[in-house]
Design a protein around this nucleic acid. Structure first.
Lengths: 166, 166
DNA sequence: TTGCGTGCAAATCTTTTGCAGAATG
DNA sequence: CATTCTGCAAAAGATTTGCACGCAA
């Protein structure tokens, strides 16, 4: 998974933890240890991750050993809360921050599987224009540009993953 | 899955079947009944489909009963041949024609799950500009705009599918 | 105290794979 | 005739679910 960050984070008034607590309470859901450990862990640093990576990291520490089921359930809640975005890459669900982080899209390298972020206002303008033509009410979008990143071009085309699924 | 077509098909010199045969032969692969029945069926009409829909359709006819495994294997070959494109929507792999059909992107309605196609040259220009800035060599892209389509807006927001996964 | 949440294991769902027999070149 | 393909069933990988018990409110 990518370790490249292309963008600066943006200012938010509540910490991710506070924001999640607010969300849970507004829905009559409980503020549990597991949920708190998960938000903390997830927003500790900005990177793309999947459920397995999260489980692997958390289970290193005896204190934060959380079951698979709970992790999947909590990830869904964070998506509902609008704090995470999910996309699927090669059949696997990948998450990224959607709280305290600006709208952006990705360049996906087929060779090393890294994700490079970029932001484009023009894209949003274009998107809205297309939607308007179709009487479509936009709630979001996802653009993934696939190809080979600069470092991999130098390394000379290494075999890419078999299925170029996005 | 969507039944809406937004674009006109484009002229191609070989029929999908001929094109696939050419591909198979160029790779020393065999032209089997199953493969031929599949290309025929798939290119019979332009729509988005997944492996299950294909299996369901084909097994209605005793003559074209093809095993799941062969269907998956052939879909991969058609993708390799550049005749189909795959994307994943809500965790399921969905295919569409990439032969005899122009480059395009989609509006995806969260309410009725339909896919509406649109083509935009500007988008390609924008894509190439972004990639150039990053020294990225583009091989393709996928843009999915999510929201609510015009018909669904009228029907008044019906509950959307739980996971807005793209 | 009253449920909601968690962990566990089993169940699902989708796609992949090993292998023996069938079909193609 | 030599292989490649296919079908079957089992395997694999990811995510979901039922249920009994524990914990938050």
């Amino acid at each position: 998974m990518s370790k490249e960050y292309a963008l600066e984070s943006i200012e938010v008034s509540l910490s991710p933890r506070e924001r999640f607590v607010e969300y849970l309470q507004s829905r009559g859901k409980r503020v549990t240890q597991q949920r708190m450990q998960l938000v903390d862990r997830i927003f500790e640093r900005h990177e793309h991750f999947d459920a397995d990576e999260l489980i692997a990291h958390l289970s290193q520490n005896k204190e934060t050993r959380i079951s698979r089921a709970t992790i999947y359930r909590t990830l869904d809640e964070l998506v509902d809360a609008g704090m995470l975005r999910a996309m699927s890459l090669s059949g696997r669900r990948v998450y990224e921050h959607d709280y305290g982080y600006p709208q952006h899209d990705h360049l996906h390298c087929k060779s090393c599987d890294s994700l490079i972020e970029f932001a484009s206002d023009e894209l949003v303008t274009l998107r809205d224009a297309v939607a308007r033509e179709h009487g479509f009410r936009v709630t979001g979008h996802r653009l993934i540009i696939t190809g080979i990143c600069a470092p991999c071009q130098k390394k000379q085309s290494r075999p890419a993953s078999p299925l170029d699924l996005v």
